[in-house]
Each structure stands twice: as structure tokens, then as C-alpha cells.
């Protein structure tokens, strides 16, 4: 329970009659209802009802032109045994979560620690590291596809000058996902700020006593910094996983632009996943099935699977949320 609620004392009201009190209680209830009404409506219309309908559509064939046709478990059968692409989409999604989330956290943490120790120019550096996070994802992705153009991009020009291997980046099934990871690392600004706040707020006396105990820099990092900011690390991982499950924009733009720079025969949505489905992530496939092929029944089945996974993740988070959501103590602030 939050302290705010506990701290509230019953309002003293002498000589109240019972009916008046009941009326007051009703009024309070009415008030809460009024305050909550936008959310109640919004939740019903844009969450509760669609959730039920997603479940229903997932058992139908539905193309939005004729009414849904009940086909039982056929969509799920295709999902689990027929669809040649979905396994790739799932493993790509897991890959990006498994690689990008820890990398982003480590990198953001590293930059934050360096920043917290910097003597000079902290404001400048903080701005520089934060700025890329502001760049709209579409613009950032376009920029990276250009920078990493295998033939004419400045990055490969540099690599060739240095005599290093020059990968095909967004045009290579092996390098496309790492390219997206690089793009993600460029935009760690938000995470970095959060880590920076946490690192700076680690009580100084903890470091001092660690130093007195003979701990070196690495050890005080391991035994003082990390444990103290662990809730932030948890937060970073949780948000990373959630974002990973929704990964769409960068993959969509990178694949269509990289494919489109040479190819037009496979235009638009058909170049999703380019090259070789290496950037076909679960939300991208769901979009393609639902809103390009208009297999809305099948896309709903995909949505149900996503729901189960995302819900499991969410439950884990909410269970652990006491450690960061309700936290009110002074230690981290």
C-alpha cells in the first residue's frame, strides 16, 4: 500500500446522522465514478471489447468484406504447423530481445557511469548522448540505412580505408539484425538518463566505506553501485522486453527502404522482412497478415499468441512492481 493512502485520516464529522453519512458515501462513489469514467469507457471500448473480438475472430476466416466465417481451430493449426514464416518471425523477435535488451542496458549503464564520474562537460556530453533518442524512429532508420549502404555508405567507405571487412549491413541476412541493434544503441538516451539519475543518487557514504574496506573501482561497482540501482536495471530489462515484443517501425522502414533502393518488383509491403525474412519480426508479420493480406482471422490468432506471451511477461512485471512502482522511500531519490 502506498503511504499516501495510509496517511489519510477519517474526516471528523460529529453528530452526523446515518442517512447523511450514507448520502455522503454515495456522493463519494459518484465522484470516483465521474473521475474514473473516461478510463472506464476507454477501457471497455478500446480494450475489453476488442480483446473479446480478437478471441472471436481468431476462430474465423475474416477479410473485412464478408462477415466472419467460423472455421474452428484452422487458424491455430496454420499458426503452429503450416505457416513457414512464423517460426522465423518468433525467433527474430526473441533474438532482438535477447541481444538488444542487455546490450542497451550495459551500454546505457556504462555511459551513465562515465558521465557520473566526468569532471568537465557533463552537460555537453549528456546532451550529445541524449539527442539521438529524440530523433523520430523513421528518420533515424532512414539515416542508418544510408550510412550503412554497403556500396556507397560512409561507414563502409571508412572500413575499406582501414582495410577492415565491409559487411552488407541491411542487405545481408546475417547483418540486418545487428544493424538494427546498432540503430537501437544510438538511441539509448532515455535509458542513459534514468541510469545516470540512479547512479548519482547512490549514497556517497557507501562508496567511502567500501573504499575504506579496500574495495577497488571494479569491486565498489560490483558491491555498491549495482545492488543499489538494481530496481532500475530491472526496469530497463522489463521495458526492453515490452518494447521488443512491439518492435515494428525500424524493421518496417529498414526493410522497405533497403529492399527498395534496388528492387521495385517486390514493392511496398512485400519487401517486409528483407533480406530473407531476417527483419521479419512478429508484429511486422501480424501487420502483413492482418492489414496487407487481410487475413484478419489469422492475424487475430497471432494476436492471441502475442497476448499470452505479453501477458505472462506483464504478470511477472506487475508481481515485481512493488519494488519500483510503489517505492516511496528516500534511498533511490
Amino acid at each position: 500500500m502506498s503511504r499516501a493512502a495510509e496517511a489519510k485520516l477519517p474526516v471528523v464529522r460529529p453528530l452526523d446522522r446515518r442517512s447523511a453519512r450514507r448520502r455522503a458515501a454515495w456522493r463519494r462513489r459518484g465522484q470516483v465514478l465521474a473521475f474514473m469514467s473516461p478510463w472506464l469507457l476507454g477501457f471497455t471500448i478500446f480494450f475489453g471489447y476488442p480483446l473479446v473480438m480478437t478471441a472471436y475472430y481468431s476462430f474465423t476466416h475474416y477479410d473485412l468484406l464478408s462477415s466472419p466465417k467460423w472455421i474452428g481451430l484452422a487458424n491455430y493449426r496454420y499458426l503452429f504447423s503450416g505457416d513457414p514464416i512464423i517460426r522465423t518471425a518468433i525467433s527474430n523477435t526473441l533474438w532482438i530481445i535477447a541481444v538488444a535488451v542487455p546490450l542497451n542496458a550495459i551500454f546505457a549503464f556504462g555511459v551513465a557511469v562515465m558521465l557520473s564520474r566526468a569532471r568537465r562537460g557533463i552537460g555537453f556530453f549528456r546532451t550529445v548522448f541524449y539527442l539521438p533518442a529524440l530523433v523520430p524512429p523513421v528518420a533515424a532508420t532512414l539515416g542508418f540505412v544510408y550510412l550503412l549502404n554497403p556500396a556507397t555508405g560512409p561507414v563502409n567507405n571508412l572500413l575499406r580505408h582501414l582495410g577492415l571487412p565491409d559487411p552488407l549491413w541491411f542487405d545481408s541476412p546475417t547483418w540486418a539484425k545487428p544493424s538494427l541493434v546498432l540503430l537501437g544503441l544510438w538511441g539509448i538516451g532515455n535509458l542513459m538518463i534514468i541510469f545516470l539519475a540512479a547512479v548519482i543518487d547512490v549514497p556517497k557514504h557507501l562508496y567511502e566505506s567500501a573504499e575504506l574496506d579496500g574495495a577497488g573501482g571494479w569491486q565498489s561497482m560490483r558491491w555498491v553501485t549495482l545492488p543499489t540501482i538494481s530496481p532500475v536495471i530491472l526496469f530497463a530489462i522489463v521495458i526492453g522486453v515490452i518494447e521488443g515484443l512491439q518492435y515494428f517501425t525500424q524493421a518496417y522502414v529498414a526493410s522497405t527502404i533497403a529492399a527498395g533502393s534496388a528492387a521495385s518488383a517486390t514493392e511496398g509491403a512485400n519487401s517486409l522482412g528483407y533480406p530473407l525474412y531476417s527483419t521479419m519480426f512478429y508484429p511486422v508479420l501480424l501487420y502483413q497478415q492482418g492489414f496487407r493480406y487481410f487475413n484478419m482471422g489469422y492475424a487475430s490468432a497471432m494476436a492471441m499468441l502475442l497476448l499470452v506471451v505479453a501477458f505472462a511477461v506483464t504478470v511477472i512485471i506487475v508481481r515485481n512492481s512493488r519494488r519500483w512502482v510503489h517505492y516511496q522511500g528516500p534511498a533511490v531519490r
Binding site: P50, T54, Y287, A299, A303, A310, F311, T314
Partner: peptide, 12 residues
């Protein structure tokens, strides 16, 4: 926390 893709089809 749930991805918007979960409900996007009926909403559309």
C-alpha cells in the same frame, strides 16, 4: 504494458 497489436484488429 500489453502490445497494441493484441487489440488492433477489432479496433481497426
Amino acid at each position: 504494458l500489453l502490445p497494441p497489436q493484441v487489440t488492433v484488429i477489432p479496433v481497426y
